[in-house]
Design a protein around this nucleic acid. Structure first.
Lengths: 147, 147
DNA sequence: ATATATCCTCACTATTCCAGTCGACATGAT
DNA sequence: ATCATGTCGACTGGAATAGTGAGGATATAT
């Protein structure tokens, strides 16, 4: 699978922090993020602490503590988060010319192109743009009314 | 991981059959494909029989039997094989608008773009073009001589 | 100061998926 | 008839994924 569940959660968590970024209402609690984005809270703990390691978020301990985004959402590409949580799309050994057999080498150009194509998308979308889109469509009713 | 080992094997197997396609030397034995492409023979058995189910290859039983490509390599896109072996890049439930929560819906456009980007590459490369490339570079010495 | 709310750490489990194997059987060429 | 092949279904070991548990550390409120 291209995107793991964990990565989906990570992106939704960052997205949630991005939504609140301009509200200046202090750090957001794990519990709140978990609720807003329907993420198992204990699992979210693991994820956020990993995102902190990666320098994407910061935290405040104690009462009224929580997490916050380090960079403004417009300067945070989704690709950065995805790559950090998931690792590279194409594993390095698939790309290494030296260790590849002749047969494998035929495919390397293909994998390179695939990776570039994916990166092109990943790096053209920021959490800022996602928030913008969200703001625009937040009140648009779902088309699929119950019958 | 985007491409499983099994899928790599499948592509190399098909590629091997593509190489021999114009030689008209009858079906190729599992053992030969396995040897040429360094694939565990028993595993290759599983893979080829799956590819047969998918209509990509045909087989001949008995002595002097083996496998052969059903379509000419130029008319076989790598995407067809990859999608058949691996299933869709983005799982359908990630894309379904009806079942997605509001939060998930923000990301759907992103996943759609990623999928399209990948498909664009997958569907622009045929096994015929891979064989061509192979024929061109088959005798180019490896740059990395042993020291 | 104390209580409490929060993050922090790290180990642990359950489940699923992947890669690969095994044994017995079916079929076709010679 | 024999032997070389493909066919079939079950099976296993290991890795990765998703998620949980228990207790510790620290900041804020009172």
């Amino acid at each position: 699978m291209l995107i793991t569940q964990k990565c989906h959660y990570a992106m939704r968590a960052v997205f949630e922090l991005a939504l609140q970024y301009n509200q200046k209402s202090g750090p957001i609690k794990i519990a709140d993020i978990a609720k807003a984005q329907s993420i198992p809270p204990r699992f979210l703990e693991v994820i956020l602490s990993q995102l902190k390691q990666g320098g994407f978020v910061g935290s405040q301990r104690g009462s009224e503590g929580g997490y916050y985004l380090v960079r403004p959402p417009e300067k945070l590409m989704v690709g950065e988060v995805i790559r950090f949580i998931q690792g590279p799309v194409i594993p390095p050994e698939t790309k290494k010319k030296e260790t590849a057999s002749k047969e494998e080498r035929v495919f390397q150009e293909l994998w390179r192109r695939v990776e570039d194509a994916i990166s092109g998308v990943y790096d053209s979308v920021t959490f800022g743009s996602l928030v913008e889109r969200w703001e625009k469509t937040r009140d648009v009713p779902v088309l699929h009314y119950s019958i």
